[in-house]
Design a protein around this nucleic acid. Sequence first.
RNA 1: GGAGACGUGGCCGAGAGGCUGAAGGCGCUCCCCUGCUAAGGGAGUAUGGGGUUUGUAGCUCCAUCGAGGGUUCGAAUCCCUCCGUCUCCGCCA
Length: 430
Amino acid sequence: MLDAKLLRTDLENVAAKLKTRGYELDVDQIQSLEAQRKELQSKAQNLQAERNSKSKGIGKAKAQGEDIAPLLAEVESLKGQLEEAESASEAVQAQIEEIYAGIPNIPHDSVPVGDSEDDNVEVRVWGEPKAFDFEAKDHVDIAEARGWYDNDAAVKVTSSRFSVLKGPMAKLQRALTQFMLDTHAEHGYEEVYVPYIVNQDSLRGTGQLPKFEEDLYKLGKHEEHETNDRDLYLIPTAEVPITNLMRDEILEESDLPIKFTGHTPCFRSEAGSYGRDTRGLIRQHQFEKVEMVQFVHPEKSHEALEELTGHAETILQKLELPYRLVTLCTGDIGFSAAKTFDLEVWLPGQSAYREISSCSNFEDFQARRSMIRFRSAEAKGKPQLVHTLNGSGLAVGRTLVAVLENYQNADGSITVPQVLRPYLGGVESL
RNA sequence: GGAGACGUGGCCGAGAGGCUGAAGGCGCUCCCCUGCUAAGGGAGUAUGGGGUUUGUAGCUCCAUCGAGGGUUCGAAUCCCUCCGUCUCCGCCA
């Protein structure tokens, strides 16, 4: 959520910046609602003040044994007006709140302006795609040939876009996960284990709700509750539970930065992506991911984004997987992000770079929604919003794909990357 | 799942319709005193929002005692629903 004060004082400028990411802010509507809000809120508050002081007068009069009947009549006449003013004021404020909850973050000034992913800017390329002296297969062919991947079984057990991994491939995925977590621990991230099912407040906090409900798996209601306040959802990313660990907390400035890493499955309905990446593990309803999350001082968040992105790169470098780093342009950046770097790994099976990590600085956007603050030493100890960041480090399923495809041999075997061997009992080849 | 108890500020804990944004204590901050330390004395110490202000400070108003409704001129206090915690029983990895 953007700062309401900013929207009131600098609306045109905000609208111009949002326009670069393809979001049309309805300036007239907001101005008119804000004008109404101001009027209705003042009116309601003035009436409340009047009622409060008269009610206090009743208490005093009563204590002194005076006749309170005339006072009662006076307050009684306020009641209708007050109720009307309160509900009008609340209605406008709720409307404003809902509109604000749907406004995306303002891109940082360093973000390149563009319309689509075609306008993303390559920052650097690391490693060189390996030249194979045979025709490189894609991960599905590689894995099926060895009996490691069974799509039919997954369809039988559940439905499409899930997978069943067997034997060495399942172990390789587990090895990757542990390798990633251990590497992040070396960089000062505390490992956390978190729930895979979250409530609506958490999803609002990180920005998935209210706008992107169709991307989520919602759990069936328990019993017949009238309200949907308690509806629960499967997490689309560990970002949600991990960032929300700090929701409604006031931290000490000296606690910052706080860095967490965690491994979770992620569940995405992939609504609207029918026909895209239907083959193999690239786009699934359920996949494994290791996530990094940071809570930092607002002045240090862009530095921290570079650092966090570097941590994701470290994983690829240690695995010796060629990749490139791109800055997402204003038109391709996610709803909550002020700036995002994507890491794209080379996939010989597709002869293309494909996204394997996305690292974002949300600045105070999520912190405002989830009230994650810190008390600064200066500024008279007033709580200030922290900045939040997160990044995949990495998407484990896609890393598995990348390892199979980049480390395949002509005979169908897979050479185990050096750094993973300790996690697989020293085995050099699968 | 059954039965009961409870949810108050950074923490502990009082309050049981009005004088309570909330006693008291701990902690923290500042000041005084004191060779140092310890002890002592004094003052301060919630959050969000609105208005005023170019902005800050200040002033002022509103809201907030787990959440949401209700009763009442007035609710931390009474009623309802929900959430959570604790104890006992049952079940269970």
